[in-house]
């Protein structure tokens, strides 16, 4: 089906503009890469922004260790195919160093532990700009996020003293020790990202497409059966045809029932979906203000 995707052109131009501003205004930028569709889209946009030169900054993956195997295989192939520079920093190392404590129990996840590893890596490499794939349509607190969002030495977000952003002008001036989080696809919706992946024929990990998986049901969500996910004895393992709408740590990403096995069917499914993307994020369900609290603490 040849759908009209021309409304993505201004969004693409905006993202490319933002990437070029980052390269020009900062000394040590880094692209935070999770292996999810949003950060994969960022890589394509960065390639477009600097072609025929290479992307002038590295990618960094904050690895919880609780990954979908498909995501890691995909990440390594992408890096090799495009000659990208990849830095990996592991949450396990932060745990071993005694900097964070592993959560325990039914809802334990390493998702929030990533923050410490991220902040340590920013300090280690002296990154002054961290580019991420967050979008304003994802969540209410993110709707107020700037494109250039200044964080203090502790990585904290102060939502009350954000810099106004007028016209296209991005102010990246910071003091030593501060850094900026940059969100080039702030104004994209989930459907925009999917339509773009379809239009540009961007490769994404196979778990975004329908596949058979061992799962169990809890609180109305479909959880992956995995060594990394705590499971009660009475929570029965089932085999279901599922796919993932967002991909994060395996312990905080729920699956959706789906038969959509290719990009065209996925776009169609998203178009007709009545559930929001983060509706399948277990980490957001903790409380209504979950995201805002994590952001204040330095989470992406």
């Amino acid at each position: 089906m040849n759908r009209n995707t021309s409304h993505i052109n201004p969004l693409e131009s905006e993202a490319i503009y933002i990437f070029r501003e980052v390269a020009a205004q900062f000394e040590r930028p880094v692209l935070l890469f999770s292996g999810g569709k949003d950060s994969i889209t960022l890589v394509r946009l960065a390639q477009k922004a600097f072609w025929p030169a290479k992307i002038p900054f590295p990618l960094m993956h904050i690895d919880t260790g609780h990954n979908f195997a498909e995501t890691i295989a995909f990440r390594d192939k992408l890096v090799a195919d495009h000659g990208l520079e990849l830095i990996v920093r592991k949450v396990q190392d932060s745990i071993d160093a005694g900097k964070v404590k592993e959560e325990s129990g039914k809802y334990s996840s390493r998702n929030s532990l990533q923050t410490t590893t991220l902040l340590d890596a920013i300090e280690e490499f002296k990154f002054d700009a961290c580019i991420g794939g967050a979008r304003r349509d994802e969540e209410k607190a993110r709707a107020k996020e700037r494109i250039f969002s200044v964080r203090d030495d502790f990585g904290q977000w102060d939502e009350k003293s954000q810099r106004p952003e007028l016209f296209d002008m991005l102010n990246g001036q910071i003091k030593l020790g501060q850094n900026v989080r940059v969100f080039p696809i702030s104004n994209w919706t989930e459907l925009d990202v999917w339509s773009y992946i379809e239009r540009e024929k961007i490769e994404i990990p196979s778990i975004y497409f329908a596949h058979k998986r061992k799962v169990f049901l809890r609180d109305g969500l479909i959880w992956s059966h995995s060594d990394y996910v705590f499971q009660e004895e009475d929570e029965e393992v089932l085999e279901r045809m599922v796919r993932f709408r967002t991909v994060g740590d395996i312990s905080c990403t729920a699956a959706v029932l789906s038969e959509a096995a290719d990009i065209e069917s996925v776009v169609k499914e998203i178009r007709n979906s009545t559930l929001s993307e983060r509706g399948a994020r277990i980490d957001d369900k903790r409380s209504e203000a979950a995201m805002e609290k994590r952001k204040q603490q330095g989470y992406f």
Binding site: H7, R136, D137, K140, A141, A143, K144, E159, K160, Q162, P164, S186, N187, T189, L191, A289, E292
Partner: peptide
């Protein structure tokens, strides 16, 4: 649309928030 905790408590909007929607004709 009222996004931040402080806003929900006071029932006011304190900063620029962006909201996205589309119809068959426009985004």
């Amino acid at each position: 649309t009222d996004g931040l905790v402080a806003e929900r408590e006071q029932g006011i909007t304190i900063d620029v928030a962006h909201i996205y929607f589309s119809t068959a004709k426009k985004s």
